[in-house]
Design a protein around this nucleic acid. Structure first.
Lengths: 216, 216
DNA sequence: CGGTAATCTAGAACAAGTTACAGACTTGAT
DNA sequence: ATCAAGTCTGTAACTTGTTCTAGATTACCG
């Protein structure tokens, strides 16, 4: 185990744990790496993101790449964080129109789904990395999870979710990832994905209705 | 691409596609490999299943191992098929006691969950392989999916599920895998897993109620 | 039984993730 | 401006999944 201080992700995230601030050049390196990663993933998916090539493509030595991102999975999960942030920004701009929370969430997720469809290889690389991640990547995966939760909660319009609603959101999130993977590996059609997303989203209305009933 | 005929899985599965029958020694080899795979996975999880070691441990040459299972992921997915079959057998013996279908499914899944808990490393290896699998493993992954669906449908007691119910079952299945992974990577407690499983299982009752209403 | 095609073995070779290391470059404090 | 500590670079080495090859062995057919 090397005793060097690990460079951690840092950007517009609010609750970042004690991260030594990066210099401008370091921030620039980090961005170059993430950009190269996304570009390569956009071509052949997970396998096309080769660490040597990422390093070369972002004009950074291999050792440096590993200092910034301690493994390929870390790199791809960070890439996903990055893309999710952008997506959250985009989705915020056009809030979903729907009667029920379920409709709004389903609509938002399908919108996100279509965005990812445009770059299926990139989506593949990111989601595979996410579900393949082991304990050593937990903090980063958690961060992605929080970001996704935020997107879903945004769509519901809820601002003080109950535990039951949070559970529903987690289930929706899981379903979103799983359907994405299933579609990416060609085992489900878009139509089926849509149906399943809509099915799971009803859990939001279900839990909301019950909470309303039990707190008169 | 090698032009050799690929040896395919074959055991008590009903709808196996044209698979040349294996000789006794071949069947024995296949079992030795699966046993070694499960044993190694039971120790260190995904990483501990090293192809050379599986080969050595099952007294088979590396090339032969690859003839039976064309990649590590194929091997682990096949291992999962194998374990699932056993588990389905076990679960059948004690049908779940519960008022609603949702309760019975949740109970069955938690029972399966506890079974996997006993060998967390093995579970880790299998589920990680399952979600990491790419298109080339689709048939095998589909088979695992069908097996899981069968377990869930068994628990519901339904014998002629509607499309809406099948969608609910898929969502439940996805949630089961995802919660398993989340628990295995230490990002969720058993309590949370239980809550989420119970949450998603209500979809079964929900869809059943609606189908009943629309077909008076 | 004899022959032939398929299968198996042992081991080398290759690919990509990861680690190690020596020397050059930056940064920050004095 | 200078020095010490920390970073970055270039490169080689190591690990493990995967492929390849040549030569045994086995299974099957007449």
């Amino acid at each position: 185990m090397p005793a060097q201080a690990k460079v951690q992700a840092s950007s517009a995230r609010p609750a970042a744990p004690a991260t030594p601030p990066l210099t401008e050049r370091q921030e620039a390196r980090r961005r170059r790496i993430l950009r190269a990663s996304a570009r390569l993933a956009g071509r052949g998916g997970f396998d096309a993101v080769q660490m040597r090539e990422v390093a070369e493509s972002s004009q950074v030595a291999l050792g440096t790449l590993y200092r910034y991102f301690p493994s390929k999975v870390h790199l791809l999960v960070a890439t996903m964080q990055d893309q999710l942030e952008q997506m959250h920004g985009t989705l915020r701009k056009k809030p979903p129109a729907g009667e029920t929370a379920a409709e709004r969430v389903a609509q938002t997720l399908m919108r996100a789904f279509r965005a990812l469809q445009r770059e299926p290889h990139l989506a593949d690389a990111m989601v595979r990395a996410l579900t393949f991640a082991d304990r050593s990547v937990s903090p980063e995966v958690d961060q992605v999870s929080r970001q996704t939760t935020a997107i879903i909660l945004d769509a519901t319009g809820l601002d003080d979710p109950t535990p039951a609603q949070l559970s529903a959101v987690r289930v929706i999130e899981h379903t979103w990832h799983a359907t994405l993977i299933t579609w990416l590996s060609g085992r489900a059609s878009i139509a089926q994905v849509k149906v399943d997303i809509e099915t799971v989203c009803r859990l939001i209305d279900l839990t909301s209705a019950e909470d309303a009933r039990s707190v008169p």
